[in-house]
Amino acid sequence: MLQVRDLDLHIGGLKILNHLTFDVPDQSITGLIGPNGAGKSMFFNTLFGLFQVNGGSIRFNDVELVGKKPHEISHLGIIRTFQDARLLPQITVLENLLAATRYAEPTTLSRVFFHKKALYQEYLSHVKRAQSLLKRVGLESKIHAMGKDLSYGQTKLIEILKLFMADNQVILLDEPFSGLFPEMIKIITELILELVKSGRTIMLVEHNMKLISEVCNHVIVMDAGTTIASGTFSQIRSKSAVAEAYLGD
């Protein structure tokens, strides 16, 4: 259960997040919608500790996230995609996936030298998993391609595959479908639904209202860094005309 209370983020005199307050129910698929600049991506960044918060709190299963470093947030079981689908350009697709993989223990130099067999075994199993994931989406031939050599659609696909490489409880998806053809959207939707079935909590930033209405069982509407409505899709839909203004997609 994710609880956001009075979250404030000020950057350069602008109130990016302004007393932001909402709940994300356990094992829900929560859509986060609102106009551009509402602060949706910035909320993800803030949750991950990429920006210093000016006030408020974010609690996940009663653990305070504010003040934690990004890798500590990741270790709590929270993972995310990036809107600009950052595939690391000068390493291979396989390495991109392996970089996002969660090992049993953090990889240290002593593990490399003194537990190399165990580490290697783990590594091999992760490679197998990466290979089968790529095969599922028809990208097995790209496994050793450099990150920069993939198309936009392929990049976004790999971004989703990374989510399968690490154990997690909460997944933050930042516009996973933006700029994609319908065929690609279909593939990614299937993958996301698979993640959903396994009992995770998902937050989805998206502009496509049709998808939101189909996929999400809870919706939060943001504007100017604050919540203006929350509930099921039909609930927020039926709210004031202000909320409606954002739904005309």
Partner: peptide, 26 residues
């Protein structure tokens, strides 16, 4: 030995994008 191991993957991850690296849990 180090750069060929998963440690090396993390090193390169940091090189390419340290924010993504930290979000990846490193």
């Amino acid at each position: 030995r180090i750069v060929k191991s998963p440690y090396g993957t993390i090193m390169k991850n940091i090189r390419e994008n340290s924010i993504v690296a930290s979000v990846n849990g490193h």
